[in-house]
Amino acid sequence: MFSHSFSQNSKFYIFLCLGQSNMEGNARIEPQDTTDVNRRFQVMEAVDCPNLNRVKGQWYTAVPPLCRCKTGLTPADYFGRTLVANLPKDAKVGVINVAVGGCKIELFDKNNYQVYADTAPVWMKGMIKEYDGNPYARLVEMAKLAQKDGVIKGILLHQGESNTGDTTWPQKVKQVYDNLLQDLNLDAASVPLLAGEVVNADQGGACAKMNTIIDELPQTIPTAHVISSAGCPQKGDNLHFTAEGYRMLGRRYAAEMLLMLGVKINK
């Protein structure tokens, strides 16, 4: 059972986001996505971004991009916006997004990531380097900073395309989740894992068969919740969502989280 008892700076809810390109944000950011972002929705920058006047480890109003300096719209955008629109006015939401386009879940394996990183394609190595070669360690580093300001209330995952067909994927995800809980001194009952499906078969998803494996995640992680991608439009490459698809998916992540928090959603 998910516990929503609040402690320390409990009015600041923090969420860790990780995965590959769909969590990184592949769609072009549209004007509607950069306006009227509530200051109660914050992002902790995980890399230095001079082009955005952002410094690693600092909080900023969550105007996209929310991953690295030149990434696109991500589910985290409308996840956070939906939360602040429904939570009490004195509550804030913060996200930390560490994601690498195209990566397998093995890149977030605390003990064996180097094996994968060393064999990653050249185009991916630059993204990995932005996290000093270890995205998992960067996520933990930022999360520990964030814990000084608020309480980690959930972990958002969107990954799977690069592991399509891998029936051991749920166990690999469990290892990442368990390591995060241990390294950040978190209790699984209070910090659920929300995992989004890849582009659905109803949208011609090239990796849609992976959703069968993703859907089984709660059997391996009792505190995992799967977020449906049904009806979320893709951009034409059968792998990545459109901006509207990310908005829809982000709102669905938020609806599930609000349900666990016992918050009635404003229509």
Score class of each variant (00 low, 15 high):
Val151Trp: 03
Ala254Thr: 08
Lys129Ile: 00
Leu261Ala: 10
Asp48Leu: 10
Val98Ile: 14
Thr71Met: 07
Val100Gly: 03
Thr212Glu: 14
Val191Asp: 02
Ser228Pro: 10
Gly25Thr: 11
Ala91Phe: 14
Ala201Met: 09
Asp166Asn: 15
Ala91Lys: 02
Met1Asp: 13
Ala146Thr: 04
Thr212Lys: 14
Leu145Glu: 12
Ala117His: 05
Ile128Gly: 03
Asn238Thr: 11
Trp59Gln: 02
Trp59Pro: 01
Phe241Pro: 02
Ala120Tyr: 08
Pro135Thr: 07
Gln147Asp: 12
Ser5Val: 14
Cys207Phe: 15
Ala206Gln: 15
Leu16Ala: 12
Leu52Trp: 05
Asn9Val: 12
Ala85Val: 00
Trp59Tyr: 15
Gln159Tyr: 03
Lys172Pro: 09
Cys103Met: 11
Ala146Phe: 08
Ala224Trp: 04
Val122Pro: 00
Glu106Ser: 15
Met142Glu: 13
Glu30Asp: 09
Leu194Tyr: 14
Tyr136Asp: 05
Leu261Lys: 04
Arg28Asp: 13
Asp109Met: 02
Gly245Asp: 11
Val84Asp: 02
Asn51His: 06
Phe41Ser: 01
Lys264Ala: 13
Gly150Ala: 10
Asp132His: 14
Ile14Ser: 08
Asp178Thr: 15
Met1Val: 12
Tyr116Asn: 09
Ser190Met: 06
Trp123Asp: 14
Gln20Tyr: 07
Val43Asn: 11
Leu186Asp: 02
Leu180Asn: 01
Gln159Val: 10
Asn97Phe: 08
Asn238Val: 04
Ile29Trp: 05
Gly72His: 10
Asp166His: 07
Lys144Arg: 15
Met127Val: 05
Ala201Pro: 00
Cys49Pro: 01
Lys129Thr: 10
Leu239Arg: 13
Phe241Cys: 07
Asn53Phe: 06
Ser229Asp: 12
His4Asp: 13
Pro50Glu: 12
Phe108Tyr: 13
Thr167Lys: 13
Leu145Trp: 01
Glu256Leu: 12
Gly133Asn: 06
Asn53Leu: 07
Lys56Ile: 02
Val93Thr: 06
Asn179Arg: 07
Gly250Gln: 04
Asn266Leu: 11
Lys56Val: 03
Ala206Cys: 01
Gly154Glu: 05
Cys232Pro: 01
Trp169Glu: 01
Ala143Thr: 07
Ala254Val: 10
Ile213Lys: 02
Arg40Pro: 02
Tyr13Lys: 11
Asp132Leu: 10
Thr220Arg: 02
Asp187Gly: 00
Asn238Arg: 15
Thr82Gly: 00
Asp237Tyr: 13
Thr220Lys: 03
Leu259Cys: 02
Trp59Cys: 08
Cys17Ile: 07
Val226His: 05
Met210Phe: 09
